Amino acid sequence: DDWEIHFNNITIRLHGVSEEQIEELKELIKNGAHEEELRKWAEEVNR
């Protein structure tokens, strides 16, 4: 699925990401992940 997530003036566009991966991302954000951590997560997902 395609997703677009907005938070802290950042837009993250995701393509072909599962519901499970979105839940992981929500947890990262909820736990106060920094932009660098989110980038690493996105790189892993996009492999």
Rank of each mutant, 00 (worst) to 15 (best):
T11P: 01
E20C: 06
G32V: 01
V45P: 01
E4H: 15
E24K: 09
E36L: 07
R39S: 03
H6F: 09
K30W: 07
I10A: 04
I29H: 01
N46V: 12
E37K: 05
D1G: 13
D2C: 15
L38A: 00
N9A: 11
D2F: 14
A33W: 03
G32Q: 03
R13A: 04
V17R: 03
F7L: 09
D1Y: 15
Q21S: 06
E35G: 05
G32D: 03
A42W: 12
I10W: 05
K26E: 05
E20D: 08
E37T: 09
D2S: 13
N8M: 13
D1H: 15
E44Y: 12
S18H: 05
N9T: 10
A33V: 08
N46M: 15
W41S: 01
D2E: 14
E24G: 05
E4S: 09
R39T: 06
N9Q: 08
E27H: 09
D2K: 11
Q21K: 11
K40V: 04
L14K: 01
E35K: 04
F7E: 01
A42T: 04
H15E: 05
N46S: 10
I29P: 00
L25Q: 00
A42S: 04
D2Y: 15
F7K: 01
E36N: 11
G16T: 09
N9R: 11
N8C: 12
G32Y: 02
L38F: 05
E19Y: 13
H15P: 04
E43R: 06
F7Y: 08
K26L: 14
R47T: 13
T11K: 09
L25N: 00
N31M: 09
E27I: 12
H15I: 11
E44C: 08
D2G: 12
E27F: 15
G32H: 06
N46L: 15
T11L: 14
E36H: 07
R39V: 12
E35F: 11
R47S: 14
V45E: 02
L28I: 05
W41G: 00
E24F: 11
I12G: 02
V45Q: 10
R47V: 14
Q21N: 04
K26F: 15
K40R: 14
E37G: 02
T11Q: 01
H34G: 14
N46G: 05
K40C: 03
E19G: 08
L14G: 02
G16L: 12
E27R: 15
W3A: 03
W3M: 09
R13G: 04
L38P: 00
E4F: 13
E36G: 06
E4T: 13
R47N: 14
E36C: 10
K30E: 06
E36P: 04
H15N: 07
N31A: 12
H6N: 07
I12Q: 05
E35L: 12
T11W: 09
E43T: 07
Q21T: 08
R39W: 13
A42R: 03
I12C: 10
G32T: 01
R13P: 02
L38V: 10
E23T: 11
H15T: 10
D2M: 15
K26V: 10
E27Q: 12
K40W: 04
E20V: 09
S18F: 03
E27Y: 13
E36S: 12
E23N: 12
A33P: 01
E44P: 00
E23C: 08
N46K: 10
V17L: 13
I22F: 08
N31T: 06
K26W: 15
G32S: 02
D1M: 15
I12M: 08
I12H: 05
K40A: 10
L38R: 00
W41I: 02
E19S: 11
I12W: 02
E44L: 09
A33I: 10
H15M: 08
I22Y: 06
G32K: 03
N8P: 06
E36Y: 13
E43C: 15
N46R: 10
R13K: 08
R13F: 12
E23D: 12
L25A: 02
I22P: 00
S18N: 07
W3I: 11
H6C: 12
